[in-house]
Write a protein that binds this DNA or RNA. Structure first.
Length: 549
RNA sequence: GAUCCCGUAGCUCAAUUGGAUAGAGCAACAGCCUUCUAAGCUGUAGGUUCCGCGUUCGAUUCGCGGCGGGAUCACCA
């Protein structure tokens, strides 16, 4: 609806021989200010040397006002031009919702941009804890948003199954194994203390008995078993949330194919590294950091920075035009080093978008839920899903902007009542489904093909609540785009809540099922359109839409 | 001490990315079901947007300086 208005205004500005400016629209906060507003007059006022209201007046005079397009055009405040669309125009536009149905909201905005989305990337040393949920769902929804806006998305999980932490995992399992067999061994200070380690040990005993007690230094069986066990669990948890990665990228391939070495050599050539105290240091200070960083330890093992740099270079080499990483705030320190390293290798780091989300705290009503990684009683993501359900988990983790700390109220998420925002949204969907069921019993067209064939008289839709609802629904495609380009999934939850609210108001004010058959059919169509938008939005959010509640 | 994020109603958070009178939910109060799902709707009350200065037609939003909270500052990942 914006496009036409944009065209008209641009040509009017040219006709009036004003300097050309980009015409931008906003949706006014206050309903009295119309459906759309523009500040072009104020932008032009400076260069034209006239009062903005006068400039606005000269533009407005050239705009037609009728019931086919604009029902009103007004100048307000310091020089805003406010537009209100005619009901007919809104209704005509809304038909595209039916035509596009499942695809309503999709676009090829990004023109099939090859995109890599990396997230979760937890190493297979344990289970996903509840706090991981934010990252899991953010990535899921951002991936969906990117796909809906014309990105070809490769969903990727980067992991490391070598090094210190894996040795610690093997040791931890081994000690539990021996303890379960009756040995009185002290546990590792820095070992993984979670109960799952004991579970793994018990499984190994069931399979192997005590035959591995005297393996000596070679704990590779325990390591491999532990890794596979953890990965299986992690993937199972992700699957419960419908999360599926296309690529599991093993850090080890960066070593085995020589990519790590290659990076160090190139850094050396460019004098970006130097040797000191037996280690190799990256000149982070020449990129503005407060101190240089070790990238190869004196033991010869790289620190995490080096493989991270090599990995990001590989993403570029694999042909990705957009590289999205999602990290928790606890990883914030590593990001500048990695980006600087990749830049030094000659890649455009503008193509790398790093999304950092703040941490999550859990409350159960008044009570604060503690969870520590090394604590035996870890509150896992599975526990959380068991407690509040998949839909609430999916919705709650994305409903706040990534920059703020998220307080997850378990009691609220669990509550099946009006307090819970997930139910509010799902209730609207179920309510519509119920209306459609009733209508179907009376032989009304409620399925998409039927509605499309029906001679629905859309001009019967003129009530304020009907038009408001349709306007709201028509915002959906642009909203999806905005959420995608700004990487802000929470705005989708805000929007869907508004859709539900606008629908509930419509429902309350006007009966859908009534004696006026033609009007009833038109209103059924509005219901169907609303159902489509809620369903599409929920699909992006990975939240289900029940037909009944 | 340094870097990054945050500070908005009693609580949890929005605010179309610089717009007009800062909005929702919860909590509080007052109403609405013999008719399509009351898991809903309507209304009342609640604010010096942490403080100060600056940028401009216009600041919750941008800049600088404070104050407060969180995260991170390894030859751990």
């Amino acid at each position: 609806m914006k496009a036409l208005l944009y065209q008209q205004l641009t040509s009017i500005i040219a006709e009036l021989q004003y300097p050309s400016v980009e015409v931008l629209f906003d949706k006014p906060k206050v309903e009295a200010h119309g459906d759309l507003t523009t500040n072009v007059a104020m932008m032009l006022a400076k260069s034209v040397g006239k009062n903005p209201r006068i400039v606005a007046q000269s533009i407005v005079e050239k705009l037609p006002v009728n019931d086919l397009f604009l029902s009103s055009v007004e100048i307000a405040g310091p020089g805003f031009i406010n537009f209100r669309f005619a009901a007919n125009y809104v209704v005509e536009n809304a038909k595209r919702i039916l035509l596009e149905h499942d695809s309503f909201g999709k676009s090829n905005f990004a023109n099939n941009k090859r995109t890599n989305l990396e997230w979760v990337s937890a190493n297979p040393t344990g289970l996903l804890h509840a706090g991981h949920g934010r990252q899991v769902l953010l990535g899921q929804v951002i991936g969906n948003l990117l796909e809906w806006t014309g990105h070809i998305v490769t969903r990727e999980y980067y992991f490391n199954n070598a090094g210190n932490q894996m040795r610690t995992l093997a040791e931890s399992i081994y000690i539990r194994y021996c303890q379960e067999l009756g040995e009185d061994l002290p546990f590792l200070e820095e070992g993984y203390k979670g109960e799952y380690i004991v579970d793994i040990a018990k499984e190994i005993i069931a399979k192997k008995g005590d035959s591995l007690k005297n393996v000596g230094d070679d704990k590779s069986y325990f390591q491999k078993y532990g890794e596979e066990w953890c990965f299986k669990k992690i993937k199972k948890t992700l699957a419960r949330l419908n999360v599926k990665h296309d690529v599991f990228y093993n850090e080890d391939t960066l070593y085995s194919t020589g990519k790590i070495k290659e990076v160090v050599e190139e850094f050396r050539k460019k004098d970006l590294v130097y040797d000191s105290e037996g280690a190799v240091w990256f000149r982070a200070t020449s990129f503005g950091a407060d101190k240089d960083r070790v990238i190869v330890k004196s033991t010869g093992e790289p620190t995490y920075r080096l493989p991270d740099i090599a990995y990001h270079r590989e993403k570029f080499r694999r042909g990705f035009e957009l590289i999205v990483d999602i990290f928790g705030a606890d990883h914030i320190a590593t990001i500048p080093d990695v980006l600087n390293g990749v830049k030094a290798l000659g890649y455009d780091t503008d193509a790398v978008k790093v999304i950092i989300h703040q941490m999550v705290s859990f409350v159960n009503g008044e009570e604060i839920v503690k969870m520590s990684k090394r604590n035996a009683k870890t509150y896992t993501l599975d526990d959380l899903i068991d407690e509040v359900g998949v839909d609430a988990v999916a919705y709650f983790f994305v409903m706040r902007s990534v920059g703020t700390h998220l307080e997850f109220d378990i009691a609220l998420a669990k509550e099946q009542s009006d307090k819970n925002p997930v139910y509010y949204l799902q209730y609207a969907h179920a309510r519509i489904a119920s209306i459609l069921r009733h209508a179907a019993e009376e032989k009304f067209a409620v399925d998409l093909p039927l509605v499309m064939n029906e001679n629905t008289d859309y001009s019967l839709l003129k009530e304020k609540e009907e038009i408001d609802l349709l306007k709201k629904l028509l915002e959906f495609p642009e909203l999806v785009q905005n959420c995608a380009v700004s990487f802000e999934p929470h705005r989708l939850t805000t929007y869907l809540r508004e859709v539900a609210e606008t629908f509930h108001r419509f429902y309350h004010e006007h009966r859908v099922i009534n004696d006026d058959k033609a009007l009833m059919q038109a209103r059924l169509t509005v219901c169907l359109m609303t159902k489509i938008v809620i369903a599409n939005g929920c699909k992006i959010l990975s939240v289900s839409c029940p037909e009944k509640m």
